[in-house]
Design a protein around this nucleic acid. Structure first.
Length: 578
RNA sequence: GGGCCCGUAGCUCAGAUGGAUAGAGCAGGGGAUUUCUAAUCCCCAGGUCGGAGGUUCGAGUCCUCCCGGGCCCGCCA
């Protein structure tokens, strides 16, 4: 809508003044008396034309008034205010109803390839609420991009190479030893576990499983037998890591088994909120293919690598970061940053036009160093977008449910899904801008009332469907068969207010997509649902004169198209009855 | 000490590249149901946009400083 207006204004300016002003705005005035849209174009023309804004506004208004799109154009103190004509609005509404959700679609992406990397949680424990929020944000960004014709790849980066995976193995092995009362016989294992081990219940459960399948096999020297037993046992998941185990050692055996088990659990948790990744990218594979070394070599050739104190450093400070960063430690092992360099170069090689990372906010310090690498590799900075997700706190009846990582108990994503359901979880994670902390009140989300925004929106959809059902029952005719021609019988102010809001949603959706602000969708939905409930409470539909009834049914149909689309874009169901 | 984010109604939060009298939901007060779903709606009240300067026709929005809160600042991931 704004684009259409912009073109008209531009054209008028060109014909009247032969000027091409840039950066003028088309906006929705807050007050109705200023019309449906307005522009500040006259202000910007005042200087080059050496005329007062109000004179320019008047001249432009007179020129544009011919257009049948407008009911009225009024210049006011330099602003130009547009009111859309009913004919125009009805014609647009007609297209909305005939085209369905495609009405809102636009070819923003032109098929360009975008990768969205999100969650990427360490496979050393179950997903918690923060991961869940990142998952929903990443998935919703993906859905929005897909809707606008981008080719999206959803990717999960598996940190299966570093020390954390080893610590997972130690933790499982330690718990396993405990089951036999033998932990004292392995002092290094015990020490490492006490200091850094994963202490959650799930580790104990894995140990119990190992005991059930293997008996004492991991205690003695019968590791080959243990591996064989595990591989031939019946698990609900594949043993990809265990199958590729190179070095036979109890901790590594435990960590490989743990990886397989945790990844399976993570996938299941994500499925529980309707998220499916296209690519599960293994960090380890970067090392196996020699990419990490290759990239460090590449950076070295460009002169950005040096050695000091036995470690290998990137001259990040020359590239916009505040200090230099270690890529290879003095003990010869690589930092997480090193594989990240390789990973992002790998993304670049895969020819994505754009790469979007959704990270936990605690990673914000990594952005400058990653951008530094891009600069060194001569990859344009805009190629990589990073969005940060702030933490989620859980409240029950006004009291915070604390989570403590050290004690190993945290609120898992799956437990929240179990409690309030997939729809509520997805919705609530989008009720705030993602870079600010979010408080989730479980009790409120279980309520079935207008206090609960999920129900409020879904109910609007169900209510419209209910009206349609009743119409079909009473008149033995489907709403689908009502000709759009009946729209011309809409006449009430309230109805046109709704229509304008609805048509404006096209701009709003585009803006939410370009700004990568998935939370905006929930606000748009709540607003639309509110307008509908309001309208519904003041206007009868069934039983009115045929013309009025059918025009209103069509209006409801248009509303339902948008609500359904909005819900689809955030991955929430649109029920026909509740 | 340095960096990032934040500070808007009692509470939770919206406010696109600066635009006209700053919005919504909850909580509080008052009302609406012979109905197509009251799982809903309407009205009222509530504000020095943390503070002070600056930029300009115009600042919640941009700049500087200060106050307050969160997160980060490792040869951890």
């Amino acid at each position: 809508m704004k684009e259409v207006l912009r073109e008209k204004v531009e054209k008028a300016i060109e014909e009247l003044y032969r000027e091409k002003p840039e950066g003028f705005k088309i906006e929705k005035p807050k007050e109705e008396k200023f019309g449906d849209y307005s522009t500040n174009a006259a202000f910007l023309l005042a200087k080059p034309l050496r005329k007062s804004p109000s004179v320019i506004a008047e001249e432009l208004s007179r020129f544009l008034a011919e257009d049948s799109m407008f009911e009225k154009i009024s210049p006011e103190r330099g602003f130009i205010n547009f009111s859309l004509s009913k004919d125009f609005l009805i014609k647009e509404l007609e297209s909305l109803i005939t085209e369905g959700e495609d009405y809102f679609r636009e070819d923003l992406g032109k098929g360009r390839k975008v990768q969205v990397e999100f969650v990427s949680a360490n496979p050393t424990g179950p997903l918690h609420l923060g991961h869940g929020r990142g998952a929903v944000v990443g998935d919703t960004i993906s859905r929005l991009l897909e809707f606008y014709n981008y080719e999206v790849v959803r990717e999960f980066y598996i940190n299966d190479a570093g020390r954390q995976v080893y610590v997972l193995g130690v933790s499982i092995f330690y718990r396993y030893l405990q089951l036999f009362g033998k932990e004292r016989e392995y002092p290094e294992i015990e020490k490492l576990f006490e200091e850094e081990g994963y202490k959650g219940e799930y580790v104990k459960e894995l140990a119990v499983t190992l005991k059930e399948v293997l008996g004492e096999a991991l205690l003695g020297q019968s590791l080959e037998e243990a591996l064989e037993k595990l591989l031939s046992a019946d698990f609900p998941f594949e043993l990809n890591y265990l199958n590729r185990l190179e070095e036979l050692d109890s901790v590594k055996l435990c960590s490989s088994f743990g990886l397989d088990a945790m990844l399976h659990e993570i996938k299941r948790d994500l499925e529980g909120i309707g998220i499916d990744f296209d690519v599960w990218f293994s960090e380890r594979s970067l090392y196996e293919r020699g990419l990490v070394e290759e990239l460090i070599e590449k950076l070295k050739e460009k002169g950005y690598i040096y050695e000091s104190e036995g470690a290998v450093w990137l001259k990040a400070s020359e590239l916009g970061d505040d200090k230099d960063r270690v890529v290879r430690k003095s003990d010869g092992s690589y930092t997480y940053f090193a594989s990240d360099i390789a990973y992002h170069y790998e993304k670049f090689r895969r020819e994505f036009d754009r790469v979007i990372n959704v990270w936990g906010a605690d990673h914000h310090g990594y952005i400058p160093r990653l951008k530094a690498v891009l600069k060194a590799l001569e990859i344009p900075e805009e190629w990589l977008e990073v969005y940060l997700i702030q933490m989620v706190r859980l409240f029950k009846g006004g009291k915070e449910v604390k989570m403590s990582k050290r004690a190993g108990n945290f609120v898992t994503l799956s437990s929240l899904v179990e409690e309030i359901g997939q729809d509520a979880v997805r919705f609530v994670f989008l009720t705030k801008r993602s870079d600010t902390p979010l408080d989730v009140d479980v009790n409120r989300l279980k309520e079935k009332s207008s206090d609960n925004p999920v129900f409020y929106v879904q109910y609007a959809h169900a209510r419209i469907s209910g009206v349609f059902r009743e119409y079909e029952k009473r008149y033995s005719e489907s709403v689908e068969n009502i000709p759009v021609d009946f729209l011309k019988h809409l006449w009430e102010e309230a109805e046109f207010k709704l229509v304008k809001k609805l048509l404006g949603m096209k701009d709003e959706l585009v803006s939410a997509t370009l700004k990568r602000e998935p939370h905006a969708i929930t606000y748009l939905l709540i607003e639309t649902a509110g307008l509908f409930h309001n309208y519904y409470n003041h206007h009868r539909i069934l039983g009115m004169d045929e013309e009025v009834m059918k025009s209103r049914l069509l209006l409801l149909k248009a509303l339902r198209i948008f609500i359904k689309l909005g819900l689809k874009l955030i991955g929430v169901n649109a029920p026909d009855r509740m």
